[in-house]
Design a protein around this nucleic acid. Sequence first.
DNA 1: ATATGTTACGTTATAATATAACATAACAAA
DNA 2: TTTGTTATGTTATATTATAACGTAACATAT
Lengths: 128, 128
Amino acid sequence: MEPSLTNNQKIVLQALENSEQPLGAYSILFNIEKKGIKSPQQVYRALDKLIEIGAVHKIESLNSYIACKHKDCKARESTSFLICQVCQKVYEVLESDLSDKFIKLSQESNFKYSTHNLEIFGICDLCN
Amino acid sequence: MEPSLTNNQKIVLQALENSEQPLGAYSILFNIEKKGIKSPQQVYRALDKLIEIGAVHKIESLNSYIACKHKDCKARESTSFLICQVCQKVYEVLESDLSDKFIKLSQESNFKYSTHNLEIFGICDLCN
DNA sequence: ATATGTTACGTTATAATATAACATAACAAA
DNA sequence: TTTGTTATGTTATATTATAACGTAACATAT
C-alpha cells in the first residue's frame, strides 16, 4: 500500500516537484519557509524519508535532490541520471539492463554488486 | 610531458597514496599538518590540480578522494568505481566500452554524452 | 482509558565540506 | 626587469549535513 506522507514531507516533495532543476536542501528550505518550515533538520528529515520510499533521489555530484517522476519508483537504491550541463535538468534513466551490465562488470573483479549510482553529464535534447 | 607537481601537491598526493581508503579533504589536512599544511585551502587547491591532471579522483557519494593508480590516467573527467561497503576500498574500473554503452544510452534520449561518473557499491573480493 | 512503543516534530547547536577574498611570493618568458 | 602566470599563505565565510534534546501525535495492546 501507498505510504502516506506527513505534512512536512508533502511540502518538501511539492517544492521538488515544482522545480525544473534539482534543488539543494537549503534551497528547498528557502522555498518553503513561508509554509512554516524553519530548520534544515525538517528538510533533511523529510528528504530522508522521501528518499527511502523512492519519491526523491539525490544527485550526489550536485548535492541536490529531485522528485522522482515514476509512480512507485524502483530506484530506491540504484539510480541513473542524465544531467544537462546547459539547463541543469536531470532525466532519470530506467534501464533494467544497466544493472545487468554492472553486475557483469562487477563480477569481472570478483566484486559482488549491490547498488549503483550513475551520473551522465552532457547536453539534453532541448538544449542541443 | 609529465606535469611536475609542487610541494603541496606532492604532499597531498602522498597522503592519498598511503591510504587504503578514500580520504576526505579535512582528513587529508589532519594527516599532513605535521608537514606544514595549515589550511583547507591548501588541500583543496592541491586537490583541484591533482584532479585536473588525473592523478586524483573524487568519489562524489563519499565526498572523498583517492589517488589514481594508473599511470597517466585517462579518467580526467569520466570515472567508474567499485566501492566496497565492507572495507571501504575503492577500485577504479577502466572499461572503454562503458563509455560506448553510455553514449548509446544517452542517444536513446537524444542526449549528447559528455562525461560520466559511475559508482557501484557492493562487496569486494577480499571481503567476500 | 491508559500505558507503551514508535514515529514525527520543533529547536538549538554544531560538525563537515568547500569556497571567497586578499595580499604576497616564485618564476618563467618577453 | 617588467610582465604575466601560477602557486602560496592566511583569514574569513559559505554551504551542506548531523547531533542532541525535549515534546507531540498516534497506534495498539493491555
